[in-house]
């Protein structure tokens, strides 16, 4: 009797496991079938050799301290290995960071004046200062002047609704790809979250290349 009860429970267990795994797999992979083709639709901010063996796409929030760490590490690595890495940057401002969206807006306006990377570098460099401010706009304006942005054009750009929608597009793309926190990198299409894991991933890739 006990053996029979055990047998029926085993049968039920197998059915339950198969059903549960099927549900998870459908929920995990079905949305990707429809989303993957749209990932390349959003233009990005890019630097480095287009034919580099290491292609990195980063989802960044300029106010996130870990993003600053990752950016410094990548900048150093790209100086040491100038032809090996290509970096593509996408905005992923987190709602928990009060200056996240505004800083992305300024960076995108800098991009429209071909000054994205100098602006990006200074934002990262001075992050500890402006992230503490209640209103970081003066700090961003100062950086804009430092990198030589046309202030009138910048003012007009900041009022442009297409900037917000471009940032939102970037963020939507991140959401579709499963980005939850920043910095999230795609190193040759492999997802890597956090600067520490990026260092170990790039370390092993560079060792393979060299």
């Amino acid at each position: 009797m006990v053996a029979m009860s055990r047998q029926s429970r085993l049968t039920i267990t197998i059915v339950v496991v198969i059903c549960a795994v099927t549900i998870v797999l459908i929920a995990k992979f079905l949305p990707k079938l429809f989303a993957s083709s749209r990932w390349t639709a959003v233009a990005a901010r890019v630097k480095g050799n287009p034919r580099a063996p290491i292609q990195i796409t980063e989802f960044i929030d300029f106010e996130c301290p870990a993003c600053a760490l990752g950016a410094r590490y990548l900048a150093q690595l790209m100086t040491e290995h100038p032809t090996v890495i290509r970096l593509e940057l996408k905005y992923f401002p987190l709602p928990s960071h009060r200056h996240g969206f505004v800083s992305a807006r300024y960076a995108e306006c800098a991009a429209r004046q071909e000054k994205f990377w100098p602006f990006h570098d200074r934002l990262i460099e001075r992050q500890a200062n402006w992230s503490r401010l209640v209103d970081a706009t003066p700090a961003f304006m100062l950086i804009a002047q430092d990198v030589g942005l046309d202030v009138d054009r910048l003012g007009a750009c900041l009022k442009d609704a297409s900037i917000d929608s471009f940032i939102a597009q970037n963020r939507d793309e991140g959401n579709r790809r499963g980005v939850k926190s920043t910095p999230t990198y795609y190193v040759n299409d492999k997802m890597v979250v956090g600067s520490k894991l990026l260092e170990s991933e790039l370390g092993s890739l560079l060792a393979t290349i060299q």
Binding site: V24, R177, G178, K180, S181, T184, V192, L197
Partner: peptide, 8 residues
């Protein structure tokens, strides 16, 4: 956790 990428 299962439906989002394991890297998160």
């Amino acid at each position: 956790k299962l439906i989002s990428p394991y890297q998160n």
